[in-house]
Design a protein around this nucleic acid. Structure first.
Lengths: 180, 180
DNA sequence: ACCGTTGTGAACATGAGTGTTCCGCAGCGA
DNA sequence: TCGCTGCGGAACACTCATGTTCACAACGGT
């Protein structure tokens, strides 16, 4: 009982938080934030790069799960569920997009393509259901979904947007744009 | 005449290219790409951070100019001009967004807010002209503009989108969303 | 021809993060 | 009580980009 909470948050979760707040944080900072020694951190993740990749993989797992769960039978409803699911994943997306060392990991890029595949196929079905404007390719719909979800989360993080309004605004903008 | 092209591209331009391609590129790589010695690079930009800030400032200059020139009297037309102007700035936006060391420079953040001010005011006018959906705040319109422009440029960079189609798709998505 | 400017390569010093080793300590089950 | 295990802390060596100094070469103006 010396430790207040026994691994309430996993090391990877804390590492993700720290590295999103400061992408150049040293391993000492990560270890300190996790309440463990730097040596222990090295034992689990031999290299800084190993740690970064592990965080990235976990992030992709979370993303994958969220996407899989959100996609259902009804295209329209699923779209709304997707937005709801993706907005809170902002920090993970930020980590994946902003951590420079990840560019050197082809496996991660491949993995992301893998995650995007069901999403793109889903958008194809949405298009076939006549719910997409002509000229909007499935991949573009996916990219727009990411963009609007991430932007909404950013708005929340900057205090410009109420958390409860974020997903709604994102969904409205995705489907109807900003104009009328 | 020893040098083929006398500063055809400025050092900052080349640095921007190299650092977008590889955010962790060393100064030696930047100097080599610019065709100058590392020592010379150090004379102009004493520190790596100085160089990064200089590239960022130049990027903000470019962004500022593009925004200022695009904003005209007619709100609708200006919106289209804005998208046209922002899409090609993708690499500069990527640099500003992905270079981690820039987070530690409050002046740059302040400068960006400065650049965004006329943009936000413009979106306010667009809203007053009745061109924005209710519930779309000016700052959200600005964020969406950035997001869609950057996403379109990314599509071009990945070879998914024809350069000539990018701005049109971005504008259409911004104003009308992906749905119908 | 002289001199200031500018760039260059080589060499060096530095510092920070990283990765490793080693030893002590606490917990825990047998 | 005895091991076993995992963790922590201290210390170490190492790597690498960085920043600095210096002497030399090319250039241009006077």
């Amino acid at each position: 009982m010396s430790v207040p909470q026994r691994t309430a948050k996993s090391i990877l979760e804390i590492a993700a938080e720290v590295l999103v707040r400061d992408a150049t944080a040293s391993l000492a900072q990560v270890a300190a934030a996790a309440g463990i020694g730097r040596t222990t951190l090295h034992k689990r993740y031999p290299t800084r790069q190993h740690l970064l990749v592990a965080v990235a993989e976990e992030s992709l797992d979370i993303l994958d799960r969220a996407v899989t769960e959100a996609i259902g039978d009804d295209p329209g409803e699923s779209l709304r569920d997707l937005v709801d699911a993706l907005v809170p994943l902002g920090p993970r997306l930020e980590f994946l997009l902003r951590q420079p060392s990840l560019d050197a990991e082809p496996e991660l890029q491949a993995r992301w393509v893998q995650v995007d595949r069901p999403l793109t196929e889903f958008m194809g079905r949405v298009a076939e259901a006549g719910l997409l404007r002509p000229g909007v390719a499935p991949w573009w719909a996916v990219s727009s979904l990411y963009a609007v979800a991430y932007t909404a989360w950013e708005g929340v993080a900057l205090g410009k947007l109420a958390p409860l309004d974020a997903a709604g605004l994102a969904y409205g903008t995705l489907m109807g744009g900003i104009g009328r």
